[in-house]
């Protein structure tokens, strides 16, 4: 009987998640182009996966993706925590106002964020170089999105601008959930601010960080819209992510089978980097 009640959910999950996933994996075994009929002649087995090993552009995209995920998550957690701690020291009215203001970037879609920051980073049109100009810095000293050396950092910065407010909200709620007596006891024992953070607050925030890492981590490993709007993967493929590469292979080069293999590879990467630790953390907590 419970199965009957679960049927709508099972059907939706099967149709929306499981079937497309199986179909994608199935397509990745063919030399398939949009509009083509799938026949035994176009079956290539694991050839598309084998080709991943020799594809230099894919290797670059993989490196960029992992580097971006690391930069993005490290930055948002660090800045989010620092801002949360600072706001806790502020007067309630000011802190509430700043927190409210902070949530605004969250309301903007990543593609719009990308377009906004593309103009902000533009040496001719943008605000960033106007501000840097006061410090005597121009585009030859900090090339921003214009050079492979700094482009990925600028993309990560844009991500921080958008996602840090989310971390601020979550970390603040984590900090507020720490019992007041514990903090007071540590203060009475003469703990310094740093000791207070590392010995009391950080352990209490462990689960909060797990949640943020899972949500934001998976988002960053499959990043598409933000980079597409900012750089389209350039300059010289220095910000090309696996998702953008998969999209290009599917809709610009029309290698749908290969694009699916790249997507499956991306999914496995996301699972290994963020899925496995999450499962491990969950099972340890249950034990």
């Amino acid at each position: 009987m419970p199965v009957v009640f679960l049927m709508p959910t099972i059907v939706v999950v099967l149709l929306v998640m499981i079937f497309p996933l199986i179909y994608g994996i199935f397509i990745s075994l063919f030399d398939y182009h949009i509009g083509m009929k799938i026949t035994s002649d176009s079956f290539v087995g694991l050839e598309n996966y084998k080709a991943l090993l020799y594809d230099k552009v894919l290797h670059r995209a993989f490196l960029n993706t992992v580097l971006f995920a690391l930069l993005a998550n490290l930055g948002e957690l660090t800045f989010g925590t620092l801002i949360s701690l600072t706001l806790l020291k502020c007067k309630k009215g000011i802190a509430d106002f700043v927190r409210g203001l902070c949530t605004m970037p969250l309301l903007v879609s990543p593609i719009i964020t990308g377009f906004i920051w593309k103009y902000m980073f533009d040496p001719s049109f943008g605000l960033v170089y106007w501000i840097l100009g006061f410090f005597g810095i121009d585009s030859s000293e900090f090339p921003g999105l214009g050079k492979p050396t700094t482009a990925l950092l600028c993309v990560a910065f844009t991500h921080w601008w958008q996602i840090t407010p989310f971390v601020v909200l979550v970390v603040t709620s984590g900090l507020l959930s720490i019992p007041e007596e514990r903090l007071e006891a540590a203060n009475l024992d003469g703990a310094s601010g740093i000791e207070l953070f590392f010995l009391i607050m950080l352990p209490a925030l462990k689960n909060v960080y797990y949640v943020v890492l899972i949500i934001s981590g998976v988002d960053t490993i499959k990043v598409f819209d933000l980079i597409y709007a900012l750089t389209q993967g350039g300059p010289a493929n220095s910000t090309l992510s696996l998702s953008i590469y998969s999209f290009r292979e599917a809709f610009e080069v029309y290698h749908m089978g290969y694009a699916m293999a790249v997507s499956v590879f991306l999914m496995i990467t996301a699972f290994i980097i963020f899925g496995l630790p999450f499962i491990h953390a969950n099972s340890s907590q249950e034990e």
């Binding site: 552009v57 090339p143 214009g146 050079k147 492979p148 350039g234 300059p235 010289a236 493929n237 290009r248 610009e252 080069v253 029309y254 290698h255």
Partner: peptide, 21 residues
């Protein structure tokens, strides 16, 4: 032609490399 479909994305990256390095 389909045989040349890989040329354009690779050329775009190469031209960007010339432009920015």
């Amino acid at each position: 032609n389909p045989g040349a479909s890989e040329l354009m994305p690779a050329l775009q990256a190469a031209l960007s490399e010339i432009a920015t390095s």
